[in-house]
Structures are given as structure tokens and as C-alpha cells.
Design a protein around this nucleic acid. Structure first.
Lengths: 241, 241
DNA sequence: GTTTACACGTCAATGGTGTTGACGTAAGCT
DNA sequence: AGCTTACGTCAACACCATTGACGTGTAAAC
């Protein structure tokens, strides 16, 4: 008896489905990504993916052990894409900022896969390269090793944590996402100054600010703090007091 | 015809189930939290919750409109518990720090539930009180409204994002957690200086640092940055209103 | 105390999900 | 040309959230 899933290298018989599609891991991953992009995260089910491929849903189990296996493959795919094409400028502020925003942005683009991978340590090639790059920015930027390592840890965790957080929001079923957005109008708007003076006083500002991600400003705050920790005093004289 | 779900105030008839349980929102939420605590986030389904309560699963729909409604109630309960007993000192640095660590800590203590809940906006009583409290710390601390709001947003998101991130790590099944820890030794330890000079140079520091959470340091960085943004320059004193 | 209205627990059914075992066809080797 | 067996298909299982109909028995009204 043959194992249910055959590794891609050993695959031989390319047998078309009833509807004429010739399956492969590549085709399945690409189709799944397209499905998620076009119809949202919850459109990705084995049954729907089967239909989109023109194959019986159970055929997928010839290519992936289970849906988790498939989603990890998806995640790995976009990690690769998210690191593509970045180049260092040599200024640690600029480079850290770009790195953070890039991670955050690319995870946000594929929330479903992001959710799965954001809190795992993969140790794979793209991840190790990212670690190396960020550490390099900090050490070449003049931070001593112990500080560079602590900063790396907080910087990377913060980028991933915010990315996962925002991805989770983006991956909510439409109804729940709508509800979360409405909450700021319906629950916080009517709060009276008597019981919630600070919310009442700042409500318009709040409602406007909360619609976006808190990450960009958090990143700027971190960069600001790093300037004061930099061994060269004010960190190149950008900040004054 | 009566609406399917009756608001808690208007509820009158307390009719025991076949198995003798007398349902209420309180009982349901407490049971759900216990279920998640004991058997993990995946154990929370309407059917299983019904069984745990000793009631037909569909009885839940007399108390919550749907599972999302139940989840939000769960989330708010969680927020409430994590802020129980906190008291302001009047110093915004101390208070913000305490607030952040408290959120982070309580989520870490209930990782399974935290995962389920960390990225929702509930708009309910405990959450609004938390928002009011944090905004109050910032405004009473002397930050002008537009800045206070931006800071609130990034501060709260940071605490929640890290909490979810660390909860996710703590909630991994033992086997997967072991595997993730091993990755740092097996994948990063052997990286040669030729291809990954920065990782190789700092590996002992890295391995030691990565075992903890990045949040405490990230929080300190944020507080440091806030000092420089404070209108009183070095952020010396408390401002009265 | 008796009556009455209806709240709410229960049942059954719907349409979704991931996953597996059995089966036979046809693909690609010899 | 014949043989093996990979792999696409089918059917079934166990679970999921949710809803409409129903009737019991509680608590209010009298």
C-alpha cells in the first residue's frame, strides 16, 4: 500500500482530474492563495479549494497531510515573498523602520497564513536571513552586542506581534470585523462625561485614530527611544531637548 | 412571539434543565472559561459547552445571539479580571508600566483563553473602563489630547499584541513547544560566521535572551520615548487639571 | 388559590466543515 | 503489450453553528 501523500520528488503519474486539471503542490498553493485574496480568508476550505481546482476535495490529501500542512506551505511561500528585494541604506533608523513596516505589511497581506506562522520559530532559511539582517543593522549601527541583542528581540517580537494582531483583525469573518468597527461608534460614542470623562473628551480623536493600526507610531516610539540609548549620545544629533 | 435572546435584566423564568442546572449568563461564561482553561481553546464549542452545563446546546441561544456574542462576553470578563484591584499612583510612568505588565501577565496566565480573545474590541463595560483608565493616566499626566490618543492606541495595541504573542507560545502543545525551543539550538547554533556573521557573533547572548518575552524591554523603550515627547521636556512632573 | 401567558429548555433538521477507507482506472515503467 | 500502483473519486463519518417548532411548567395576574 502506498502512503497517502507522496513527496514531490517521487511523484510520477500526472493524472488529470475529471475536469482536466493536472494537480501539483505548486498549482494547489497558487490556487489557494488566489482563493484567499479574492474571496477572503474563510473562503479557504478543502471543499472550496477542490472546486476551484476542478478536482475532488479529497484529492488534496494526496499532496498535503492535512490542512495545517497546506497552510504552513502557504505561509512559507509568502515569507519568501516578503523579504524579496529589500536593500540596506546604511542608516540604522531608516533600515529598521523599513524592515519593521515591511514585515508588518506583508503579514497583513496574507492574514490567514500569517496567523499560523507568526508565533512559530521556523528556523528556515528566510527566517534566519531576517534575523541576520536585523542584527546586522543594529551592530553595524553602533549598538554594543548585549544591547543589540535585547533590541533585536524586542524589535522582532514587536513587529511579529503587531503583524499577527493586525492580521487577526483582517482575518476575522466579515460579520465580526464589521462588529468590531461599529463598536467604536455604538459603544464609545454615547459614553457620558459623568462616568467616562476622558473617553468623552477625546471621542472624535479616538474614533478617527483607532481605525488604523497602532504599529507605525509604536515603531516610531521605539526608534525614538533607541536614539537615546545609542552610545553616541543623541544618536547623531537628530533629537534635541 | 418572544425574541430568541432576552436581555439579562428582563429575564424572569429560571427554569432548570433536564439535568437540573439553572442557566444564566454568569454560569455560562464561567463554565466556558473553565472549559477553555482545562481542555484548551479547541474544546470550546456550543455542543461541548452545552454538555458541560448539563443543557441542550441550543439553550445557549437564549442567552447569546451567537458564538461571537459569547466570545466577546468572554473577552470582556477576561479584561475585567486582569485589571481587578489595580490602583493609580499618580505618576504616569509607573501607572502605564503597571498597566502594561498587568495585562501582559494575566493573559500569560490564561494563554488558551487569551488567544481566543486578544484581538477583539468588545465595547463592553470592562473594556471601556480600561480605555478610560489608560486615557486618564495620559491626560492627567500632561499629554495633550491628540498625542494622548495616539499614545493610547499604540500602548494598548502593544500590550495586547505581545500578550497574544506570548500566550500563543505558552499555549503550544508540549511537543510543539519543545520543537520550537530546539530550533534555536539546532538551526541557529550551527550557523557559520561565513554566511551569518552577526548571528554567529552573538549566538550565546541570543540564545539566552530569546527564552524570555520581549515585552518588558519593549515597554521600557516606549516609556523612554514618551519622556522625550512629553510637553514638559524631560517629563519631570505630574500635571494637574 | 386558580388561571393564564409565555419564557425557555428541548428536539429535529439543515448545510457546513475536515478527514479516511475502499475502489478502479489509466499512466508510465519494463 | 502487460503490469503495478499512483492517484482521482466516491461515500461515509463525526463534528460544527444555527434555526423553527413545540410543549412544559413557572411566575405573574386575578
Amino acid at each position: 500500500m502506498s502512503p497517502r501523500v507522496v513527496s514531490e520528488g517521487d511523484r510520477r503519474r500526472r493524472r488529470p482530474t475529471k475536469q482536466g486539471a493536472v494537480l501539483s503542490q505548486r498549482l494547489i498553493i497558487d490556487t489557494a492563495l488566489r482563493l484567499v485574496e479574492q474571496h477572503g480568508a474563510d473562503a479557504l476550505s478543502v471543499r472550496r479549494l477542490g472546486i476551484a481546482l476542478g478536482a475532488d476535495p479529497s484529492a488534496l490529501y494526496r499532496y498535503f497531510r492535512n490542512t495545517d500542512d497546506l497552510l504552513l506551505a502557504l505561509a512559507d511561500e509568502f515569507i519568501g515573498r516578503s523579504l524579496e528585494g529589500w536593500e540596506a541604506t546604511g542608516d540604522w533608523r531608516t533600515d529598521l523602520r523599513a524592515m519593521g513596516l515591511r514585515i508588518h505589511h506583508s503579514y497583513h497581506g496574507q492574514p490567514q497564513a500569517a496567523l499560523l506562522v507568526a508565533h512559530r520559530t521556523t528556523g528556515r532559511i528566510h527566517e534566519t536571513r531576517a534575523v541576520e539582517t536585523i542584527l546586522g543593522i543594529l551592530r553595524d549601527g553602533g549598538f554594543p552586542d548585549p544591547l543589540a541583542v535585547r533590541i533585536y528581540h524586542s524589535f522582532a517580537d514587536q513587529a511579529l506581534a503587531f503583524a499577527a494582531q493586525d492580521a487577526a483583525a483582517a482575518a476575522l469573518p466579515p460579520a465580526a470585523a464589521e462588529a468590531d468597527a461599529e463598536v467604536w461608534r455604538q459603544a464609545y460614542g454615547p459614553l457620558p462625561a459623568a462616568t467616562h470623562p476622558h473617553v468623552a473628551a477625546t471621542y472624535p480623536l479616538l474614533a478617527a485614530d483607532m481605525s488604523g493600526s497602532g504599529y507605525p507610531f509604536a515603531l516610531e516610539l521605539m526608534l525614538t527611544a533607541l536614539e537615546t540609548l545609542h552610545p553616541d549620545g543623541a544618536g547623531g544629533g537628530r533629537r534635541d531637548r
